[in-house]
Design a protein around this nucleic acid. Structure first.
Length: 810
RNA sequence: GAGCACGUGGCGGAAUGGUAUACGCGCUAGUCUUAGGAACUAGUUCCUUACGGAUUGGGGGUUCAAGUCCCCCCGUGCUCACCA
């Protein structure tokens, strides 16, 4: 037998697979389908490091097994390339983003190809391809038609360095996720998507998904549903008691209404401007108030929401607010611990039972009135539900029970609020999908469907202007559109903002089903065939951004009748990060990056694949260790050498022990791959190898079955060895072995004999041995006798195939 | 501060409530080799000369039996964080 030469084998097999179009996917209605999807990469200038392919290897393993199990498998790959990272990179390298992206994509593709994945490259998509983004624009157009996309000039997060507005989801600790700059609040005209309209569905449909609980929990947290009451507090002139206006507060604890000792509005609250215009004389300290609101607004989000900061605020002198249930007048404050964009921007303060109100009241010497017995404010933001006191005729009732009555008596209404904000959808940058929107003066005119796509023009200068307009605004030829041919034709102006990076990735998985369709986003027949994504694998960092946007986009398309499922991704699996050997993140900055090209050259793609699946539990973060990888290489070499032990005579029959081991391995490996427990699948294959090596000869049939189990992990060497046995067909399109349970059962098992729970001996018996015989055998063991003699046997527990436990007394 | 994970040899880790430490790395000894390495063979949780004992972050509990279930504490990681 020749020496194992990974370079030769891997090159040869990859060529053969391409030549025979082994992985070309078809909608085969005679087969069940399986759609397994990777989160497509964002091709950066640095190329892939060994951590990136971990998830791709996993989907490759699953897809190969599924194919062998008779499924028609869709396992596609594409590239997400619009947006800030590509654009900032292009600016830095002084090249056009389109050129940089094409180069990076080519490099990524090459790096992926040498790993021997079974992607059907005929279905490749790229979000920056006009044939693709035509449908991103189309969906936006439909959202606009349905009133889900609207223009707004509310202050939004603005990154001063990237010179663009950002969505809430794009922030990390109040900083720009891309460049780390502290984000400012700035009023910018922008397109916003009413994702909040889907908040309840996004929340409710989570329950049925087969996703990691932690990711579902993050989404619930992000959507942040809370039920509570809106209560109206009249605002009155403090001396005349004359009603000037009113504020609506939102509270989840209306049962504490009797404990309200003051009220607070956010610095941005409309009441202040309203009072200033309508009743300026009612308030005596405008200067103080205005200086406070101005400084609050000037603060960055990060400063303003710092929990450790002491709470500040200013009393609004001259006005009081009236408790809607007691008629009591309490003072009004402006304070920035109340957020303008949550609830109603105004709260009723109950310092006795709310931690934040308590801190504020203590600082400003405000009254604290207890209304719930046993409500310890130190235990959390809110008191528990105890018995009400000092609460009028509600006193003595359970607080939770009393809520309803209090709300109705205060003439409040029950409402549901969400933390989720509408999606700020425009960026003042060049490298993104243009909006299919024009303007005739102030009137918004959507581009008609037949004129899609609106192609992103080539520009000389694509640096951001910082003015709130994108660089597209400077291209007069593109911005001005003539409607009609005659000289008097109307001139319209194109929208010059572009869409955010997350637009294309919100629906790309649908395009793989029908990537070249120019008349439809996806053909309904194909959509019906592939249906939802059966398995989606990617990083947990997308929990609250991509995975929320994509679910929203999908639900919208469902409402439009474009897709037939309510949810896009049936099962989600997170992939754990691969860290560098030093335990830090792999980064050029630290100089600790391991390049897969080098690993493949030295050890081979099969070794790298096996190693990454063997390292540890798939969803756990783990440090790379090149030294440890040698074990995977040895394993492959042992599989290779095992070929020498394979019997050439057809008559060879395996021993019952070998048959049992093989069938158990088939069962375990099949289960483990299905459950993404790749590390134990491989350890089982290794243990099986140890058993095989103890034997003199192995039948060809047994070896072939074993090779099939190895094939998803090490596809090149498995196919090569399979061919060396004289097979003409690729191993990857043969059928997956099935476990023969009858071959497992006959085997004798070693079971432990315990005395008082401590193992004292072992007996080798038939699996279904009767209790009486087991007891007799166990008690006959000298090492057991030693511990039992002279003592009374209280009872004997026998679990067939597992254990005998003798309980003694004395 | 809240939520969610998690804590097992020198290291990565395995274990439907049923022989803890599978599998792999490393290490030790041996074979082969001019040598080194590679490869192969054997050994490798700890204490003890041995008999035996101890052991899954610490403490308690349930059970014939606990790494696994329950309670308390300590530690680590991730996510969210003034959401009324």
């Amino acid at each position: 037998m020749k020496k194992y030469d990974h370079k030769k084998i891997e090159g040869k097999q990859q060529k053969a697979w391409a030549k025979t179009k082994l992985y070309t996917t078809k909608e085969d209605t005679k087969k069940p389908k399986y759609y397994v999807l990777d989160m497509f990469p964002y091709p950066s200038g640095e190329g892939l490091h060994v951590g990136h392919p971990k998830g791709y290897i996993a989907t490759d393993v699953v897809s190969r097994m599924k194919r062998m199990q008779g499924f028609s498998v869709l396992h596609p790959m594409g590239f997400d390339a619009f947006g800030l990272p590509a654009e900032n990179y292009a600016i830095k390298m002084k090249v056009n983003p389109a050129v940089a992206v094409a180069k990076n994509v080519a490099r990524y593709k090459k790096q992926l190809e040498i790993l021997g994945f079974d992607y059907d490259w005929n279905r490749e998509v790229n979000t920056t391809d006009p044939a693709f983004y035509k449908w991103t624009q189309w969906a936006f157009l439909k959202m606009y038609e349905k009133g889900l996309a609207y223009e707004s000039s509310e202050p939004i997060n603005w990154c001063p360095s990237c010179k663009t507005g950002l969505a809430n989801e794009d922030l990390e600790d109040g900083k720009c996720e891309r460049c780390g700059s502290v984000v400012e609040k700035k009023p910018i005209r922008q397109w916003v998507i009413r994702i909040t309209k889907y908040a309840d569905r996004l929340l409710a449909d989570l329950d049925a998904l087969d996703w990691p609980e932690s990711i579902k929990e993050s989404q619930r947290n992000w959507i942040g549903r809370s039920e509570g009451a809106e209560l109206v507090f009249p605002v009155v002139n403090a001396s005349t008691k004359h009603e000037l206006s009113n504020i609506t507060v939102f509270t989840t604890r209306p049962d504490t209404l009797y404990g309200v000792t003051y009220a607070v509005v956010a610095p941005e609250h409309a009441l202040l401007t309203k009072l200033k215009t309508e009743n300026p004389a009612a308030v005596s300290n405008w200067a103080e108030i205005e200086s406070y609101t101005a400084s609050a607004k000037a603060k960055s989000e990060i400063d303003r929401t710092d929990v450790k900061r002491e709470k500040t605020g200013v009393m609004v002198h001259g006005v009081s607010v009236k408790n809607p249930i007691t008629g009591e007048l309490v003072s009004l404050f402006v304070a920035d611990y109340v957020l303008a964009d949550y609830g109603t921007g105004a709260v009723m303060a109950v310092p006795a039972h709310d931690e934040r109100d308590f801190a504020f009241a203590k600082r400003y010497g405000l009254p604290i009135k207890e209304v719930i017995l046993g409500g310890d404010i130190k235990t959390g933001a809110f008191a528990g539900f105890g018995t009400l006191v000092h609460s009028g005729h509600f006193s003595g009732q359970n607080a939770e029970v009393a809520q309803k009555g209090i709300v109705s008596e205060a003439k409040g209404k029950w409402v549901v609020k969400f933390k989720l904000k509408d999606w700020v959808f425009s960026r003042q940058r060049y490298w993104g999908e243009p909006f299919p929107i024009m303007r005739d003066g102030d009137v918004v005119v959507p581009v008609s469907e037949k004129d899609l796509p609106v192609i992103l023009p080539k520009v000389k200068s694509y640096e951001p202007s910082g003015t709130g307009e994108s660089p597209l605004a400077t291209i007069k030829k593109w911005v001005e559109v003539k409607i009609g041919k005659e000289k008097s034709a109307k001139k319209m102006m194109r929208e010059t903002n572009t869409m955010p990076q997350w637009a294309g990735s919100s629906w790309y998985y649908l395009r793989y089903m029908d990537p070249r369709n120019s008349s439809k986003l996806v053909d309904p027949k194909k959509e019906h065939y592939w249906n939802e994504v059966d398995l989606y694998v990617g990083g947990a960092e997308h929990a609250t951004r991509h995975l929320i946007y994509a679910r929203f986009w999908h639900k919208f398309l469902f409402d439009m009748g474009v897709v037939s499922t309510k949810e896009p991704f049936k099962k989600l699996q997170s992939v754990g990060l691969i860290m560098a050997e030093d335990g830090r993140k792999m980064s050029k900055r630290y100089g600790n990056v391991v390049n897969p090209d080098d690993i493949v050259a030295t050890y081979g793609a099969d070794t790298m694949r096996v190693y990454e699946m063997f390292m540890g539990p798939f969803d756990q973060a783990i440090a790379w260790n090149t030294q440890s990888m040698i074990g995977s290489r040895r394993f492959i070499e042992r599989v290779w050498r095992l070929g020498e032990k394979v019997s050439t005579t057809k008559k060879h029959v395996d021993t019952p022990v070998i048959e049992a081991v093989l069938n158990k391995t088939i069962k375990k490996v099949t289960e483990d791959i299905s459950m993404m427990r790749f590390n134990t699948a491989i350890s089982t294959l290794m243990a099986t190898m140890n058993e095989f090596e103890k034997n003199d000869m192995l039948s060809r049939g047994a070896y072939e079955k074993y090779l099939k189990l190895v094939a998803p992990f090490a596809p090149h060497v498995a196919d090569e060895l399979y061919a060396q046995l004289g097979n003409k067909k690729s191993i990857h399109i043969t059928s997956w072995p099935i476990c023969d349970e009858t071959k497992i059962g006959v085997e004798k098992v070693k079971i432990a004999v315990q005395v008082m729970g401590k193992v004292r001996g072992v007996i080798e018996v038939e699996k279904d041995l009767s209790e009486a015989v087991a007891r007799e055998l166990a008690l006959a063991l000298p090492e057991v006798k030693k511990w039992v003699d002279g003592k009374e046997i209280v009872k004997v527990i026998y679990v067939p195939g597992r254990i005998v436990n003798i309980v003694v007394k004395g």
